[in-house]
């Protein structure tokens, strides 16, 4: 029987190793998902860092792309938040600036974070933002308002079948967890 129980023990150790490995795999899915989506751009996430615009970029005047902007607040986020431009026509390669308006109607200082998402998701890879309020957390004092700029260009490589895409911003209240100093207002 000892031979039997030794072989049982060896087997149990192997199986427990699989269990631990799969527990780790569950967590490994988190970075894998991000990398996969970064490469393929399939979940509509835009680049969180500023792109640089080359002034010599060829503007493709033969195509016109409609970019739409929508805003929404996560429930519990009290700011007024709206796009000053709701839709804009751009040629691929052309640099454009749009503005978003925010106002903090409450009596307390709040820090917000806007999260962008592009639909259809495949367009996200071709939307290059050289400047965006979404790159940083935005503090706003009680009662204050602000215009937040967003400067972008559409990569001329944008697939031919995409003629319209929508950039959506969802604004979150991150006051509790933020490390940004409250200075605007």
């Amino acid at each position: 029987m000892t031979e039997q129980s030794q072989s049982n023990n060896r087997m149990v150790i192997k199986l427990v190793a699989i269990v631990i490995g799969m527990f780790g795999f569950g967590f490994a899915l988190v970075p894998l998902y991000d990398v996969f989506c970064d490469i393929t751009g399939i979940n509509g996430k835009t680049n969180p860092y500023a792109a640089t615009y080359d002034v010599n970029t060829d503007v493709d005047t033969s195509r016109e792309i409609t970019v739409e902007f929508i805003t929404r607040n996560q429930s519990g986020m009290p700011w007024d938040f709206e796009a000053r431009t709701h839709r804009i026509k751009v040629h691929p390669g052309e640099l454009k600036t749009v503005e978003f308006y925010v106002r903090n109607p409450t009596g307390r200082d709040i820090i917000g974070q806007a999260i962008p998402s592009v639909s259809p998701g495949t367009a996200a890879l071709y939307l290059n933002k050289t400047e965006c309020f979404c790159f940083e957390q935005q503090p706003l004092k009680a009662g204050a308002e602000a215009l937040m700029p967003m400067q972008f260009y559409v990569d001329p490589q944008l697939p031919e079948d995409i003629k319209v895409f929508t950039l959506s911003y969802t604004l979150y209240d991150v006051t509790g967890t933020s490390t940004v100093a409250m200075n605007r207002g």
Binding site: I20, F25, F27
Partner: peptide, 14 residues
């Protein structure tokens, strides 16, 4: 079971 129950455990832990 041993392949996916640990993934569930990971999901609830997250």
């Amino acid at each position: 079971l041993i392949a996916v129950m640990p993934v569930l455990a990971g999901a609830v832990t997250m």
